[in-house]
């Protein structure tokens, strides 16, 4: 039973929260950027002059990974793993920090993929009407709203957890 107590101690729980934020959002972004990249390669094969426009669209789903890293980093700072001395956490404190990593971890994963699909679909606009880049960027950019909201939720939780 002792190993269970040490496994689920506060610090490990908080580390799991940081890992989940980075892993979930990072995987979402990796998949999203990959999806958009495949479509971008298709457009570029026929029209290499559209590199700039397609790169912009491909980059859009990349932000979730950054948001996940920010939350992960903030959790690590709070528990003293980065930039200080490690703090002894209660299980409840660790659990709270783990929960704080959930919004950006989950929403970062789903919105990264969704944004990648929207970006890939908008590559079709760039293929046919490159002058409409501004409008084409709006559709995938709308998905970003929810990643930002999740980042905000995770940040507010992190801010409110006293240790």
């Amino acid at each position: 039973m002792e190993w269970i107590t040490s496994l689920f101690n506060g610090t490990n729980m908080a580390l799991a929260g940081a890992a989940f934020a980075v892993f979930g959002a990072g995987t979402g972004s990796a998949k999203g950027v990959g999806i958009a990249g495949e479509a971008a390669a298709g457009v570029l094969t026929e029209d290499p002059g559209k590199f700039g426009q397609t790169l912009l669209l491909q980059a859009l789903p990349g932000t979730q990974g950054i948001y996940g890293l920010i939350i992960g980093f903030l959790i690590l700072i709070k528990i003293g793993i980065v930039g200080g001395t490690p703090v002894e956490l209660t299980t409840i404190q660790g659990l709270s920090l783990m929960v704080a990593g959930l919004p950006i971890g989950v929403v970062g994963f789903t919105s990264g993929i969704a944004q990648g699909r929207a970006s890939a679909a908008c590559m079709g606009i760039i293929a046919k009407r490159p002058e409409e880049l501004g409008k084409a960027m709006m559709y995938p950019a709308m998905v970003e709203t929810y990643a930002v909201l999740a980042l905000l939720a995770s940040f507010l939780m992190w801010l409110g957890i006293a240790i």
Partner: peptide, 17 residues
């Protein structure tokens, strides 16, 4: 549908011809 990402985007570029 994601198996067709590259092919579909390339086709969209060709459709304008």
């Amino acid at each position: 549908d994601t198996d067709y990402l590259y092919a579909s985007a390339r086709i969209k570029a060709l459709e304008k011809n």
